[in-house]
Design a protein around this nucleic acid. Sequence first.
DNA 1: CTGTTAGCGCATTCAT
DNA 2: ATGAATGCGCTAACAG
Lengths: 338, 338
Amino acid sequence: MAEKIGRIRDVAKESGLSIATVSRVMNGYKGVREATREKVLRACERLDYVPNSAARALSTSRTRTVAAIIPTIENSVYAKFVAAIEQTLSEQGYTLLLAVSHGSEAEEIEAARKLLAMGADAFILSGAAHDRALLDMLARRKVPHVFTSIWAGPEGPVPCIGYDNHEIARSAVGYLAERGHRHLGVIHGPLADNDRAVARKAGVVAMRAQGLELCFEETELSVAGGKSATARLLDRDPDLTALLCFSDVLALGAYFALAERGRRVPDDMAVMGFDNLDWTSETVPPLTTIDLPAGMMGREVAGQIVEHLEHRTPLAPVLLPSRIVERGSVGPGPGGIS
Amino acid sequence: MAEKIGRIRDVAKESGLSIATVSRVMNGYKGVREATREKVLRACERLDYVPNSAARALSTSRTRTVAAIIPTIENSVYAKFVAAIEQTLSEQGYTLLLAVSHGSEAEEIEAARKLLAMGADAFILSGAAHDRALLDMLARRKVPHVFTSIWAGPEGPVPCIGYDNHEIARSAVGYLAERGHRHLGVIHGPLADNDRAVARKAGVVAMRAQGLELCFEETELSVAGGKSATARLLDRDPDLTALLCFSDVLALGAYFALAERGRRVPDDMAVMGFDNLDWTSETVPPLTTIDLPAGMMGREVAGQIVEHLEHRTPLAPVLLPSRIVERGSVGPGPGGIS
DNA sequence: CTGTTAGCGCATTCAT
DNA sequence: ATGAATGCGCTAACAG
């Protein structure tokens, strides 16, 4: 926005019609004679006319804009999620307003305030645990919003579109246990302000009853974090036979830590990841991991939001499927399968 | 935007002042008595008032919004770049409008059209080669824009904020040549619609005069791509002693391809990357790569754009520093150093 | 099927 | 230092 560019009344003048008709054409209304529509379109072409979104927003109270606040965009499954959201919104003529919270509730609410002021029509949030003030803000203004990457059941005032972190973690531990692993190292990212990680850890802990020995290690969510956590775990507990990492990125760090110590995967140590990032099928050995449907989640949430905004379709909670992707980083088990 | 929330005239009524005064306070104008300012602020508080951006934009012809169109957000140095842009804009009260072009000029211009209609105050583009129509559009509307990730000299109608891909590639080849490598495999991403990759390849080719044997392999920009390209290269040309990858992601793929064939880095094969992504210091062996200042570039371009928008400071081309980060993936050389 | 007109919420003269 | 009035460009209700 910088130059006085063609306005709707210029197009009206140029086409010899009224601004109402031009508006109708621009918004694809029905009752417009084909010949008139053509005339308008040609005038738009000649004047290089593009409707002004601000004026449109002011008049309709809608910006065709959707805000997403995510913990980070680097180094993780979130990039894929965001890419899917952006593409879906884009295809429907919507624009993504992106903000990064760095996993901090304070930054999140700050970002939300800004995006709300920008007039975002809806919000996509990560997880279900948020500052009361943020949720109040959204509720008071009646701005639709969805929780993602989590599943808190089909009930609740705000729909969740995500997966069941608790259950997934349980099943991962079960998978390892079935293969004879009794002594697990669990590497996870920061638990603070992160209900997804907390749910996963709880899921693991719930399996302790199976007579497993669990060793948790919290670290920064990066390859370096996974590497150092693995090193610490190895020093602390030499009997570990398997490592469960709450992110493929951490698992890659584990690979490198093990390589440095000359320990082979999966013979000397089983490694299991989370996310099923693109490259996990390429590692040596290929990484056994949990497929989290990041792309599907992005498409689903963005698609639902647009539907809701356009046709008032109610937002519906969706539990997305996830599954263990068996590859080569978990062997038949330390004692073989009995 | 959904509910009739407090408007400026409500605040005016509530505070017993005029909307002009409220506006002055909201925009931090000087000539307002401290006592009145307080009164206004309190009224805003009570009514939970937030200025409407659309109305503001309509009235000022500015949206405090900056558009960035990038090839991809997944799996690469762009995530870091975008994160830096987002953070810098955010700190200055601006909002990022993000679009992904998937490296296609067609998608790029489509996205630009949309973002222009959204009223973006400025554009951040990747590379310097763009559809004429896109550049015309921007010029006609006098929307400031910057080319990034590239350096086309300090001249030119559009400022570049980036690095010299040609020179960087040259220096990388020089580095390998100095260590006795005469037979290089070069793995790069798609060249189509990507002047950065083209410049790098040209930089490599320019070194051929040094009596080097060069073997190029184009592939998809992913770990899988790097892996398969390496495999092809190895089959095609068994005498290769070094692999130069135009992205760390490709280099990681090379690592895995070599591991699968039992070839060690750097003894059996030197590997060099591009980008200096966070995890490259953690691989085994740590990856020797080129540090591309993605974060710095994001901060610089976003910072300059905001300065330009706020104070008309001219946009200035900047050649960002890059350097070879020596780590363990390039040994002393196949024949030792003579 | 098309035209006229009244706001949408705010910034911004111009008065006072 | 503060207030009243105008217009930004568009949509939508109403009129014809």
